[in-house]
Amino acid sequence: MTTLHMLSHSPFSDSRLSSCLRLLGPGDGLLLCGDAVYALQPGSAQCQALELMPESIGLFALDEDLSARAIAGPQRLQAVDYPGMVELSCRFDKVNSWL
């Protein structure tokens, strides 16, 4: 079963992203919301790690959080709005939020 992992903490002061990256399975998705979009900060090790994830892993971010922080994200990133977030939660078999 595929999992959409949701993160909302900044990865610079928190271990959720690194723990999540180790747990990701092929075909899983990673949705960044809130301060977690800082992981897409260009030039950061975190952004590099996200770009190096296998192709089969979908990388998504909530569009309002990207615009609020003026972050564009790498090529492979797909920005989604709330309806898009709902669609993602239907697309993957389950949603795992890293609370």
């Binding site: 079963m1 999992t3 180790r22 747990l23 990701l24 389950k94 795992n96 609370l99």
Partner: peptide, 16 residues
């Protein structure tokens, strides 16, 4: 880590 990936994949729902 591989065991953890397989574990998460097996369950219908997850709360972290």
């Amino acid at each position: 880590d591989a065991g953890l990936t397989a574990l998460v994949a097996r369950y219908d729902q997850v709360i972290t």
